[in-house]
């Protein structure tokens, strides 16, 4: 029983990480209208900037993490302006395929600069706490807390601030938003900054709780896709729930089936959801 509880708690942590990784992806899908395959590579960028500053340049963890997140946010903005803006009128399929090319460029750059091999940050070893027989480390707790904070602040941002409201308006009806005097360019830029910044945050979390290798991004995109699809592409609040579902389902599955099949659960989710309920958890069926 304790073992099941342990898998459940680990699943919650995985889920919280997936929430962080997916919210930016879903935001891009919602506002810019396409699936950004290169989103996962941004996690890699941030993770390796943090790693480089932390271990190679000898910075403390916190400043390197902050610099990594900010740098990733601006890199995302740059790519958005340079690559995706000019081809927006060619349709979501071309944008989707283009983002595969962008993923290639970023992935190749990381490989060329960092090289293969397994790396980890220069931070103190995790302290393990035991609560009712279930183990959880302090780093895992940070992930959970940050996921909760991100969810709350994003909700506040989208509902209370002017930019947030503009983002929502543009997502629902770009033409109407423009005619009501919303600066589309500015809103789009804000979206890229936030989405990439969130990817940066998730990347730093990844560096903190896992070991890093250069192919790490690819494994993330598959799970991000699973969470985004279960949530219903483009919906934001249901990402919170679907992230937890996918995380718990993946980690609990290890109890019954060989651990090698763990990623398979994510794809099973993708296939089942798309075949049975393509609109996802959000349930807003679109024709």
């Amino acid at each position: 029983m304790t073992l099941i509880a342990q898998y459940f708690v680990t699943g919650i942590v995985t889920g919280c990480f997936l929430i962080l990784a997916t919210i930016g992806f879903s935001l891009t899908r919602r506002v810019e209208g396409f699936l950004n395959i290169a989103h996962a590579e941004m996690l890699g960028v941030s993770a390796f900037i943090a790693w480089g500053l932390n271990t190679q340049a000898g910075w403390l963890f916190l400043p390197s993490a902050i610099v990594a997140i900010v740098a990733t946010a601006f890199l995302g903005l740059l790519i958005g302006r340079l690559v995706y803006d000019p081809i927006r009128n060619l349709g979501p399929a071309v944008l989707l395929i283009s983002s595969v090319g962008v993923a290639y460029v970023i992935g190749g750059a990381i490989d060329a600069i960092v090289g293969t091999g397994i790396r980890s940050l220069n931070i103190p070893l995790a302290t393990t706490y035991k609560i009712l027989g279930v183990r959880i480390t302090d780093y895992q707790m940070i992930v959970v807390v940050l996921a909760a904070l991100t969810g709350i602040s994003l909700a506040l941002f989208l509902n209370k601030t002017k930019t947030g409201l503009a983002i929502r308006a543009m997502a629902d009806n770009p033409a109407l938003a423009t005619s009501r005097g919303i600066d589309v360019q500015k809103t789009s830029r804000a979206t890229w900054l936030i989405a990439s910044g969130l990817a940066g945050l998730a990347g730093v979390m990844l560096a903190m709780i896992a070991t890093l290798s250069t192919d790490i991004a690819f494994h993330q995109i598959l799970q991000i896709l699973a969470v985004a699809i279960l949530a219903g592409l483009g919906s934001l609040y249901s990402v919170l729930l679907s992230g937890l579902i996918v995380g718990v389902a993946m980690d609990m599955s290890v109890y019954w089936i060989p651990a090698g099949y763990r990623p398979l659960i994510a794809f099973a989710v993708v296939i089942v959801v798309l075949l049975v309920r393509p609109e996802g958890l959000a349930g807003r069926s679109k024709s």
Partner: peptide, 9 residues
Amino acid sequence: HMMTGVIFV
């Protein structure tokens, strides 16, 4: 890899 991606985009 990078060049392939750039040409592609």
